Amino acid sequence: MVTTDDRAQRLIESAAKFRAPFTLDPSLALYSPQDNVDSLKHPRIAAWMDFVGRDYTPKLPDAREHVLLLLPCTRTKPYILSTEHRRINAALIAAGFVPSAPADPVLLAFRAEEEPEALFSLAPLAHPSGVVVHRAVISEPLGLVPYEHMLTWPGGTSPAVLYDDPGLFEDRGNAVSPWRADSTAVRVSASRWKWGPNEKRAHVEMHNAMARAVAEALGRFGHLYARRISWVAPGLTHRSFVVAKAERPAHGIVATRQVGAERLALTGANDLLPPDLALTALPTRPQCAEALLRLAKRLGRTPAEAAGHFGRGGGDATPLALPELLEDLLAAVLPTKVAKAA
């Protein structure tokens, strides 16, 4: 028998992902697709979606070229303190990018002695070549989180430092809320569950809502950028939020989901955006394959032996944070000659 005590234990695990003084709002702990769908009506989430979708406009410093860089959300809150974001931002700073505003004092409390203060700025990053990178995060249940509103926004404390949402990651085997009356998940072992029809249907509904949220925002201000890059690991849900139906085979992402007798379509933001505002989803699968070979060479191992290191991003991260793939990121955001020099 599953009880509310099970959710209480999950809340303890969620709270551990936050770095003080940031704390979890228990009403924003989302453990299943059904929790995610319900969250769209949560006052904090609804207000955020309305702000980003209708009112928010980036304030960008003058530049020869503006680039939007979308990064994945992370289990660590705030995102910028995660291993993944730290390494990505460190690579940009090492390549010559400089924040257009000082680091946030609250974030500086987490700075290690060897880390530059610039690593803890939420402002757009400017490069001497004339490129400005504006960072944002693809998140469920928030859709799009501009970096500068990671901690605060006009509504007060940003919901980006209040939520935990492992509820759409089916492969983990615990993205379920068995205490819910509408749960159709089936336990297959002591720690793993299999989604039922209600979980699968809610997943499609939430997936498509996130694609719409990203598209709605970029449909308003995507023209501000010369390039719009989504730097999200292939195969993950965040990549699926972005790519169009025609792009999915190249990214190894399914276009539909079977729910009972129905086959439901998965919509990406690029399905909803005009071609001139579409996002480029990187790294590509060929880039990942090449990066694995370079990693194996660096480690003095075979590609098969290096695969585990690659999958873990060299530690508590994803492959996106590896130096070999960060080379491809720099090549995407900087002019060719500058990227090679970096």
Rank of each mutant, 00 (worst) to 15 (best):
M1D: 15
T4V: 10
D5W: 08
D6T: 10
R7S: 06
P21K: 02
F22G: 06
L24G: 08
L24P: 14
D25T: 14
P26A: 05
S27Y: 03
S27N: 14
Y31T: 13
P33V: 01
N36L: 12
V37P: 13
D38I: 06
P43H: 03
A47S: 14
W48K: 11
M49E: 05
R54H: 15
D55W: 00
T57Q: 06
P58C: 01
K59T: 09
D62P: 15
R64A: 15
E65K: 15
H66C: 12
L70H: 12
L71N: 13
L71W: 10
C73F: 01
T74P: 05
I80N: 11
S82A: 03
T83S: 06
T83G: 02
L92G: 09
A95I: 00
S100M: 03
A101P: 13
A103G: 12
D104N: 11
V106I: 12
L108D: 14
A109S: 07
F110V: 03
R111K: 10
E115I: 03
E117G: 12
E117I: 00
F120Y: 11
S121K: 01
S129K: 12
S129C: 13
V133R: 11
H134E: 06
L144H: 08
M150W: 00
L151C: 10
P154E: 03
P154N: 10
P154G: 06
G155N: 15
D165G: 10
G167W: 00
L168R: 14
R172M: 12
G173M: 02
N174K: 10
A175L: 04
V176R: 06
P178G: 09
R180P: 08
S183E: 05
V188Y: 01
S191Q: 06
K194T: 13
N198D: 10
R201S: 11
A202Y: 05
N208C: 02
A209G: 10
M210G: 06
A211L: 02
A211T: 05
A213W: 01
E216F: 00
E216Y: 01
R220I: 03
Y225T: 07
A226V: 04
I229K: 11
S230D: 13
W231G: 10
A233Q: 09
G235N: 02
K245I: 04
R263T: 15
A269W: 00
D271G: 12
P275D: 04
D276Q: 08
L277A: 08
L277S: 09
L279D: 11
R285A: 10
Q287S: 12
E290P: 08
R298Q: 07
R298Y: 00
R301W: 01
P303Y: 00
A304Q: 11
E305S: 11
A307K: 12
F310C: 04
F310V: 08
P319Q: 01
E327K: 13
E327C: 07
D328R: 12
P335V: 00
